[in-house]
């Protein structure tokens, strides 16, 4: 009997596939990709758009990572961390794309700083320079609230990423193609839990309703989307949950919650701008 067949873990290190995007991507997330600006695309607008999409992923990744070690049980702890890591991966690619499209978006750092552009964007911008929606920056509530937020966000993000398959920029298309598989799982995970909580106990249902009401008004902040709305309606119907009577919350300037989150997220990087990690 070949040893490989006795262990599910055999054969993992046969090539550089254990690096998320290949070994070269450890230093440069877009290694090997054509990062020239396609004809007809405005580099400044492209950078701005990538910052919007990247910041949404980065901020929600941080919120989900706050669950690490605190989730209701080990399995959910790992599940939420997995989603956070997928989103962090999306953020790396999109922030790097923003920096290659328009280097002027990258905040200046002291001479000799080894901080790559993606990290400069993540750790050295102030709150008012972030382009994320309010939905992702709200502080975490309970587990049910997080499930509702992931469901609403991933459903909208997946519908958007499916359309980005037609984006003129090849890097954005590649990010979207990779993200679609990740988001499909995030949506499925959240929808499964949504239905489970809705059909659970009186307490789980109460918490689910409360959580949904907290995030529901924010779902249009990147524009209303008929495809996403249809999916959400289906999930709510399967769970036997009525849509909350909450009007849309207009995109506003950031809340103080983002400032507090960034203070914690950025403090070490800012204290050591010449640090190597």
């Amino acid at each position: 009997m070949n040893d490989d067949h006795d262990s599910a873990y055999a054969g993992l290190l046969v090539d550089d596939a254990h690096w998320a995007f290949g070994e070269a991507a450890h230093d440069d997330p877009l290694a090997g990709m054509d990062t020239s600006i396609p004809a007809g695309v405005d580099a400044t607008e492209l950078a701005s758009y990538c910052l919007e999409l990247g910041d949404d992923a980065l901020v929600l990744a941080h919120r989900l990572s706050e669950w690490c070690g605190r989730a209701p049980d080990l399995e959910e702890d790992i599940a939420l961390s997995n989603i956070a890591l997928d989103l962090l991966g999306q953020a790396r690619l999109l922030l790097t794309r923003a920096a290659t499209a328009d280097p002027s978006v990258v905040p200046p750092l002291p001479d000799g700083s080894p901080v790559p552009p993606e990290d400069a964007l993540a750790f050295f911008r102030d709150d008012h320079q972030f382009r994320n929606t309010n939905l992702v920056e709200l502080p975490n509530g309970d587990f049910a609230e997080t499930i509702c937020r992931v469901l609403v966000w991933a459903t909208y993000r997946l519908a958007l990423f499916e359309r980005l398959a037609a984006h003129p920029d090849g890097v954005v298309r590649a990010v979207a193609a990779k993200g679609v598989k990740e988001l499909a799982y995030h949506r499925d995970f959240a929808a499964q839990w949504f239905v489970t909580l809705a059909r659970g106990t009186e307490e789980s249902r109460r918490r689910l309703h409360t959580g949904l009401a907290q995030v529901w008004g924010y779902r249009h902040q990147r524009g209303e989307d008929a495809v996403a709305e249809a999916v959400l309606a289906e999930v709510l119907a399967a769970a036997g949950v009525a849509a909350p009577d909450v009007g849309p919350v207009a995109t506003s300037s950031h809340t103080e919650h983002l400032s507090r989150m960034l203070a914690e997220m950025q403090v070490v990087a800012r204290a050591h701008p010449r640090g190597r990690w």
Binding site: D4, H5, D6, S7, A8, Y9, A10, G11
Partner: peptide, 11 residues
């Protein structure tokens, strides 16, 4: 079942 495995293995 791993990529190179023939059967499901208890993990």
């Amino acid at each position: 079942r791993s990529k190179r495995g023939l059967n499901h293995v208890h993990v």
